[in-house]
Structures are given as C-alpha cells and as structure tokens.
Amino acid sequence: MSARDDTAAVRPATLAWVSRHLETGERIVGTEALHGGLTAEMRRLTIGRPDGGTRDLVLRTFVGAEHAEDWLHREAGALTTLTETGVPAPGLVAVDPVAAQCEYPSLLMTHLAGRTVLDDEGVRLRLPVLARHLVSIHALRPVERPRNYVALTTADTVVTPGGADAAAWAAAIDVIRGPVPPWEGRFLHRDFQPGNVLFEAACPSPSGPRITGVVDWAGCSWGPADLDVAHCSTVLALLHGPAWGLRFAEAYEEAGGALAASASERLYWRVRDGLACSEEVRSVVLPWREAGRTDLTVRVVEQRLDAYVTALMNTLG
C-alpha cells in the first residue's frame, strides 16, 4: 500500500475517537491517504508526541460496505491472534465495527515500515520469500479459530473474458460445479498477495528481499492451505505472467508447505480462485495502475487470466 496526497480530512467523530486512543500528550498532526485498498478508505495518521517526535498509525474506514462489521471483527481478531507470533502484522489499537463512535465502521492499527512491490523486476527473488511467509502463517494454531472460509464464486457467476479459450473455460467451470474436496484446516489470510505484503524499503540486503509486514487481515478464515496458495498464484499470474502463477505452488511446497494430495483436488482450488478473479478484473486493475503498473490494462489482465486458467487445465486437468 502506498501513499498519496489526502483529499479529505478524517471525519470529526472519527477524529475524536482516534484522539481518545492516543497516549497522553499526543495529537494528530497530519493525515495521508493510502491507495491500494479495494474495500475501505485507508489513511496514515502522523501522531505528534510530547517530546517533539512523531509516530504513525493507520486508520481503516469502511464507507457503505455491506459486510463492514464482520470484516472488522475478523481483522481485529486476527491482529490480536498474531500478536507475538512472529508474523509481521500491524498491532491493534482500537476498533469500532458498528460505528458506535465513528461516522463509519473503523479500525485503528500500528503502521508498519516497508512498501509494496508490484514490479516485474526482482519477482524471481521475491517469490520464495512470499512462499516461506505463507507457510509460517499456515503453521499457526490459534486457540480460537476464525470462522470457516466462504467461497462466493459459483459456476453461474463466472465472467469469461472476451476471446478466451471457450473450451478451457467451460471445462474449468465444470470443475467448480463438482463437490468440494476434503480439506485439512489451516489459519488463512485469504488475500495473501503482493499488494498486501510490505518489503524492506531500503536496498535489498545481501541475503535478498525481506518482508517487513503483511496487512489486510479482514478476510482471515479457517480452511485449506490451497486457498491462500491459489489466490497468491492467480495474482502473481496477472501481475507478472502465467508462468509465475504456476511456479508459486511449487515454491510453497519447497518452503515446507503441504497442499492437497491429488492433482484433481489442487486443480479445484486453483481454478476456483482464477475464476473468482474473472468477476473483478476491473476493480483490481485500477489500484495496480495507480501504483505505477500502467502497462496492466483491463485487456492485458484478461488475457493473462485466460492464459493462466488454460495452463491450469492443461497441467492439472
């Protein structure tokens, strides 16, 4: 997630709510809108300290979102669970999931250093680092599990891109018409992908890229590891090309992660996520272009999605 000039001040009631959760003598001295979020307004708040220094917090606000209460409850629960686990996630400061004190449902959290990296350059080095971090997330065994995953895409909601391989897409849609494969539960992020991972902003160290944070835990769920792997694979395919999407599952297993036993089960989860992305190509392209990937037009991403789904059917189908 990256910054841009703020175009609107924090709303008064929300500003007062944030102020009540600051330390004695602190005050808000600046706000900056962050781009990259699809479902919520994100702002970095600069907090002035009594000693003259500053620190940053992040305010997440859902405006008009139908499921805001559920998302914020889940994110707050996830951030609490992740405290002292070693997973670099924000710390929870406060949450108002029903807008009891804020104008809109909101969550206040600590700010993590680092930046998202969406460029093609360096993807070969970043991919195994992403895989290792996802394995560490899936290894968590919280005392209180999040709710089971929800998959909203159905065979009837898939949007086949214009000019796509009709036979491959028809076969892929038939895959998700079938029964859900058996699965072993894991702690899932549910939107683990480069846009929600922060890398060290300075020049890479000799040991390679280093992740400084994983953000956006609103979809945290309990379900098969294949779901998270499938989603990251799809996003990598759209950002960098189908070959990188196909490679991620291998990197995950090389990092010690375990996926479904059979090719047909793996195909189910990976195709399901690819088809789900068909419904939201336009919404994901906009933040990528705002972040500098102007080469990623809707048409380019649709073509990559078609090539990726077709490759999955050819390799696992």
Rank of each mutant, 00 (worst) to 15 (best):
V58T: 13
A89C: 06
R115K: 10
R55K: 01
T80W: 04
V98S: 15
D120H: 13
T54A: 01
D96H: 01
L107Y: 06
T61F: 08
Q101S: 14
T81P: 02
E66D: 12
L112Y: 12
D56W: 04
L108V: 05
V117P: 11
D96K: 01
T81D: 11
A65H: 15
A68T: 10
T54G: 00
L79P: 14
L79Q: 11
E121S: 14
A100L: 05
D70R: 15
Q101I: 00
L108C: 10
L92D: 06
G114Q: 07
V117F: 07
L59D: 04
T83M: 01
T116W: 09
V117Y: 06
L92A: 05
V98T: 14
A78F: 08
L57M: 08
R60H: 06
T116E: 14
V95T: 14
L118N: 10
G91N: 04
G77A: 04
L108G: 06
R115A: 11
T83L: 04
L82Y: 09
L108K: 08
A76T: 10
D56K: 06
L79K: 12
V87R: 02
D96T: 02
A99P: 02
V123W: 11
V93I: 09
D70N: 13
A78C: 12
T80F: 03
E121Q: 14
V95I: 04
D70L: 15
G86C: 13
D120K: 03
F62R: 08
W71G: 00
R60C: 05
L82Q: 09
A89Y: 04
G52P: 00
G86T: 08
D56R: 09
V123K: 08
A113R: 04
A65Q: 14
D119N: 11
P90Y: 02
E69Y: 11
V93M: 03
G64Y: 14
D119Y: 05
L79H: 13
E103T: 05
H111E: 02
V93P: 00
V117C: 11
E121K: 08
G91P: 00
T83W: 01
D70I: 13
A99M: 03
G77H: 12
P97N: 13
G53N: 00
V93S: 03
V63C: 06
E103L: 02
L59A: 03
A68C: 10
G64C: 13
H67F: 11
D56L: 06
V87I: 15
S106I: 08
A76R: 10
D56C: 13
E69R: 15
G77I: 06
G122E: 05
G77M: 08
V117M: 09
R124K: 10
D119C: 10
V123C: 06
D56Q: 14
V63W: 07
